[in-house]
Simulated assay, not measured.
Amino acid sequence: MNFLTLPERTSGRRTYGLTSVIDLGTPIRELENILSDYSHIIDIAKLGVGSAYVTPNIKKKIEVYKEYGVKPYLGGTLFEKCYYQNKIPEYRTYLQDLGIEWVEVSNGTLDIPLDERLTAISQLKRDFHVIAEVGSKDSDKEMPISEWKEEIKVLLEAGCEYVITEGRDSGSVGIYEKNGNIKSDLVHEVMKDVDEQKIIFEAPTPKQQMYFIKEMGPNVNLGNVKLNDVLVLEAQRCGLRSETFYLGERECRLLL
């Protein structure tokens, strides 16, 4: 029975309002239990860091995600490892053998020049949906706002489906201060000239998630969400947590 008036959420095969989870080694049986209940509120799953390469039964895990309608992809660190060792052709074959349709191009660990990332994107997008990431995993490396904006613009123009803003699974780099506080000036400037439906904000903590929900609404794209947090996140999006209680209330009153 639905009797509350709540903020409108995208549903089904969403193109925005995405919840992208991070899987850092969830056992397959546990994963199946989680997805059997919550797959309808999970859109994308990143097998974090380079963990996919050493994951037992990795192909089975990929199949489980796909069976539940969740798009799996491998963390950008594995792309960077392959780039560093000149193994991108082998990486492409590896992804195809696994049945993966999405790939991340990042430079969070290595300082890969933008033009080289664009070359990789041009090659990979022939066979995959490409997600690019902007920002460094080095908390001491400050990237000028103008560079953030330019990279996001260029990466989207190059054909990336989405661009991720770096935050790590710790929420302490990239768009965040070392203490986890959001660089709000950076976020507001970056979003001025960008289609926010194409940006995925890495937001691993409830505090960070609630910031973006309150700033950009219930259908903001959020990434690096822990698998066990997806239900609470959906409640937050729907104004069912104290901190987001009044989300969309003005629009709701207009409907009544």
Rank of each mutant, 00 (worst) to 15 (best):
M216S: 09
Y94F: 08
K192V: 05
S36K: 14
P206K: 02
K71Y: 07
K192P: 04
Y16N: 10
I22F: 08
P7M: 15
T26C: 13
A235L: 10
D229P: 01
L98Y: 00
T10Y: 03
E151P: 05
K81H: 02
V173C: 12
E161F: 05
V130E: 04
D169N: 06
I175V: 14
K59V: 06
N57V: 00
G17M: 12
L124C: 00
G108I: 12
G217I: 07
S184N: 09
L186S: 02
L255T: 11
K137S: 13
Y84F: 15
A45T: 14
R250P: 01
E151W: 04
T205Q: 10
N221K: 15
K226W: 04
Q197G: 08
K141P: 05
A120R: 05
G17F: 09
L155E: 14
I22K: 02
L240I: 13
T244M: 15
K141D: 11
V105Y: 01
I152T: 12
L114H: 11
Q236N: 07
A158W: 03
S184Q: 11
F79H: 11
M1Q: 13
K60E: 11
K125N: 03
K125S: 15
G159V: 02
E147M: 12
D115K: 15
Y176P: 12
G174Q: 00
T19H: 00
Y246N: 14
N224P: 08
E234V: 07
V54I: 05
Y16M: 09
C160R: 13
E104F: 10
K153P: 02
T19S: 14
E32Y: 08
P113L: 11
C160V: 09
Y53P: 11
G17A: 03
G48T: 02
E202N: 13
C160P: 12
